[in-house]
Design a protein around this nucleic acid. Structure first.
Lengths: 148, 148
DNA sequence: ATAAATACTTGCAACTTGCAAGTTTATTTT
DNA sequence: AAAATAAACTTGCAAGTTGCAAGTATTTAT
């Protein structure tokens, strides 16, 4: 019954490797961190820098520079909010959306492939379990600031 | 039924944050990467550099330097193998073992806390699922070189 | 005996990180 | 209404991490 840590460590490690492969689309090559930024911008409605930096548990200064580089390669937009000019609102360019979508599809595909090694029953159980785990972690006092 | 990626991303992110907190013991403070190295050395019987670097999917040169810094703070030992003098055999110092154990306990404790938010039935199911997932990923063609 | 392979180490150059200090705009206090 | 405080960023810096290419030492293959 024990060695939870080992099980988790192993799984997270594998998933991390999976993630790493998924960042080249067309002729655009982005880092893992950058792909996470695209992902977070994509799933939010015009988030501020703060919001995304918080979600990724990254220092705002670090994040600021990452956004700059994503703007430079034309994947992300940043416009000052008209309501509060301190705030910058982030979005994806058309190209950024394309890249985010391609990565998303790639990941889904890989997850499907992984799931294909299990029975349907097992697949359901695993998904159910991940959900439970996320909920438990959200309730936990010891971890996990990001609020998604 | 869809949005597997979101579920996984979220879980991995949370677990990563959990991991990050767990690296200060007594007055020794180590990085996440270093804690993983200790972990991998601990669970193997006198591994070589290659073996651990492979397990962590790190470049050997990077790994070499990380080991150097861990030796400098007195947590890791490295001795040339007598059988093959090209090979260096890694181990933990007494202090290194203490640190590895403390981190291990810390992680177990946190995982227990997280699990405490679920029923016993759910806990079993989740553990079972993680095992299944690891097996499926091991079978997968798209990911996950590390062979543990 | 020579060539090729293995297990590392080091130099480099690029990138990432967080902290501290600064700028601009918004809110609170007096 | 003016001054102080706070919030949302940006930039300078210094430290650390990374991988590649090129090197050394040892072992295996030819």
């Amino acid at each position: 019954m024990e060695n939870k840590r080992e099980l988790f460590q192993s799984m997270v490690k594998r998933f991390g490797l999976l993630n790493k492969n998924c960042c080249t689309v067309d002729d655009v090559e982005i880092s893992l961190v950058q792909s996470h930024i695209l992902y977070e911008i994509d799933r939010r409605e015009w988030p501020s820098m703060q919001q995304v930096a918080d979600a990724l548990a990254t220092d705002l200064s670090t994040f600021s520079r990452q956004v700059q580089s994503l703007m430079k390669i034309g994947l992300v937009t940043k416009v000052p909010s008209s309501a509060d000019k301190r705030i910058s609102v982030l979005g994806l360019t058309e190209e950024g959306q394309k890249v985010a979508l391609a990565i998303q599809r790639d990941m889904e595909e890989h997850l499907e492939e992984i799931f294909s090694h299990m029975t349907e029953f097992e697949q359901d159980m695993v998904l159910q379990s991940i959900k439970l785990l996320n909920e438990a972690m959200a309730k936990s006092s010891v971890c996990c600031k990001p609020m998604y």
